[in-house]
Structures are given as structure tokens and as C-alpha cells.
Amino acid sequence: MIGLWDTTGNEVVKALAAERRSAGGVTSGLALTLVAVVDEKRVREAEAASTIAAAAHPCRLLIVVRSDVTRDVNRLDAEIVVGGRLGPCEAVVMRMYGRLALHAESVVMPLLAPDVPVVTWWHDQPPERIAHDFLGVVGDRRVTDAAQAVDPVAALRQRAVDYAPGDTDLAWTRITPWRTLVASAFDTVDARVTEATVVAPQHDPTGALMCGWLAARLRIRPTLEPTDQYPRMRAVELKCANGDTLRLTREDNTAIFSRTGQVDRQLPLVRRPLGDELAEELRRLDADQIYSEALSALSGIPDLDRRSPHRQHIWRDPALVGRQSAASASPEPAGTPS
């Protein structure tokens, strides 16, 4: 590992090249560049997840930590690891302070691996508009996590408003095992589904996306049955035109599949670590049309997949926005009496 304190982007590029030479080509075949935008308190989580993902997808990992953008003094600290604790990847952890953090692309762009796709992942509260972050604009794929937001379901709806082909969310990834089990039930079901119920907490983004997916696939209006007894989605129930009822219920790391007239079956439904979820999203670098259809059904915004996949960067200064918000919230001065 090489540590560079109070350095420059040019020095980071040189140090990465030197470390690659000394490592002897540990990562000679890179599949992509993964740019992770992370809050300081989640850096270790992001490193652990990226290590798992890199085992399946050798990549150049660029972790960007932005701090104190209102600070007058700019500073860049960097750690460079090639084939070390982060597994089979080239990793650069960059901590940016002051106004430099608003121009992270000036450091990141020269570090992108040549001739491979770029995936941008926010392991933090998702941005309101991805175009406000240049690191998202340069990404071929953009991965957010609505569960990190204060209101996860509202964050999902905002993802629909701001959607462009190539966007995805880890809330969608988390229901892949659910979607697999529900879809496999139709291997032996010929009847049309007339009703669907999803049992999940009111603010669970996975439950909301499951409703959107069922609506898009089955052309029905699912019902969300709120529950406060469980921290995440609990069950999916489907009623068919022939009177049969199919129900999938989570029990710890298994799911119980029930069907009218048949014996209950136990199926695996393990909650995966963050790294496995990230690795799943790195398997595909094209637009996920099924996700866009589910998001469209959830939000009521049509034709998301027909939008342009390209965004144009929109400059936004968080410090200036904060001052404007404070000014608008302050009471107006009292008028001078005549």
C-alpha cells in the first residue's frame, strides 16, 4: 500500500502506475472501473463489498470520500492498493476536502482504466439528480441505494423522475431471489392472476418495487399490506382466476411456498451481503428494461426506457444552495414605521 497525504492528482496517477509495476501485473485484465462515492463512516463497508464484487469482476476501484466542501483549504489524501487487502483489483481511496470535493472528476478522470466501462455506485444517500454529480454523468451504469435515504420509497419515486437507461438501485437487486421464486411458481400454473398482495413495511423500498414488478408483469394493481412486525418484506400472495392461491412467506433464511391443494414447500431465501448484491449489478452493463418497467409502474411515469441514456452535467454548489435555503427560511425584516 502507498499512502499519499496532501498530494495532487498527478502524483496519484504516478503512484498507481508505480504500484502496478511493482505488483507484477496482478490485475492484467480489468473488466471495468468502479467509482464508489462514499461517506467517511461507510468507507470500510464499501471496501468490504467491493472486495467481494472484485472477486467476480476484476476492476479498478476508485473510492471517493468528499468532506467539508465549505472549507477554504483544499486537500487530497490517497491510499493506493494493488492486489492487497481489497482482493484482485487496483484500488485508490481518495479523501477530498474543501472545494476540491466539488471537482472530484479532475482527480478521478485520469485514473479511469482505458477501454472498459465505468460504473458509478453511491454508497450513501442517493443524489436528488444524478446530473448534479459529474461522476454519475461519466458512468455507463449508475447504482444507487434507496434504502440509504430518509424516506426510501420517496427516493425510489425520485429515481423514476430522474431516470435514464443504465440506472439501477440495490433495492431492485435485493428482490432478485423473490422474483426468481415467484416466477418459478408459474412453471406449473396456467391460470391468470387476478389479485396480488405484498406484505411489507410501509417504507420498505423492496416491497414497493415488488408491487411495481408484479404490476408490470401481470397487468394488475397489487395491494401493499403494511406491517410493523417485520423489518423487511414478509410475503407475496397471488390469487388466480381458477380459485387457487399461491403464497411465498419468508421465515429466516428460507421461504415457505404454499399453494391451494398442495403440501407446503421450503425454498432457500438467504439475505445476501452487500458485496454479492453489487456483484450482481456488475454482471450486466446494459440498461435493465425490467427494472425500468417496474419503476414506471411504481411511479406512474410511462416510457422510462425510451429516455436518452446520456446526461449533461448540471453544476450545483451545495454551499451556495445551503445559503440560499437559509436566506429563504429567515423571516423578512419588519418594515420601518412611518
Rank of each mutant, 00 (worst) to 15 (best):
H203I: 05
V143G: 04
S50R: 02
D145S: 02
A216T: 05
T27E: 00
G87K: 02
V161N: 10
D228R: 05
G275P: 01
P337C: 15
V82R: 09
R157F: 14
D303Y: 14
P110M: 14
A183S: 13
A279M: 03
S299H: 06
L274R: 03
E47G: 07
A326Y: 10
V12Q: 08
R284N: 04
G261R: 10
D252K: 13
L100F: 08
S184H: 08
E251N: 00
T245N: 05
P114K: 12
L34N: 01
E225Q: 13
V81C: 09
D115N: 15
S325E: 15
R217M: 14
L61E: 04
A48P: 02
L86T: 00
T144G: 09
V118K: 04
D167N: 12
D72R: 11
L320T: 12
R142Y: 05
V82K: 03
T227W: 05
P205F: 00
T188K: 02
L16D: 01
V119L: 10
V37R: 02
G261V: 07
L62A: 01
L102S: 04
P231I: 15
V69S: 09
R250L: 13
R283M: 00
R307L: 15
P331H: 08
L209W: 06
R265L: 14
I52L: 04
V93K: 04
L170C: 12
L111N: 05
F186T: 01
R307G: 07
M210C: 13
V161C: 14
V13C: 05
P165C: 10
W178C: 09
V69M: 03
G25I: 01
G9M: 02
L111D: 09
A319L: 07
L135R: 07
V107D: 08
G212I: 10
D288R: 00
P58K: 00
Q289L: 15
E293V: 02
H103N: 15
A155Q: 03
A104C: 10
R157H: 13
G300L: 05
P117D: 09
G29V: 00
L269S: 13
L181Q: 13
D115Y: 15
L269D: 14
L295E: 08
H57A: 00
A294I: 07
S308T: 03
R129E: 13
M210S: 09
A241N: 03
F134I: 03
N74D: 15
R232A: 06
R234M: 05
T336N: 12
P226I: 01
R21H: 06
T144P: 03
C240Y: 09
T197M: 07
E225T: 10
T336F: 11
D167G: 05
S258Q: 12
R192A: 08
T144I: 01
I256E: 11
H132I: 09
M1Y: 14
H132E: 04
F134A: 11
V198E: 06
V189A: 12
A200T: 13
N242G: 12
V26G: 00
E128H: 14
A334V: 11
V64N: 08
V270N: 04
P126M: 14
R21C: 01
A49N: 02
D151A: 11
A208P: 09
E280M: 06
V107I: 12
W213G: 04
M94W: 08
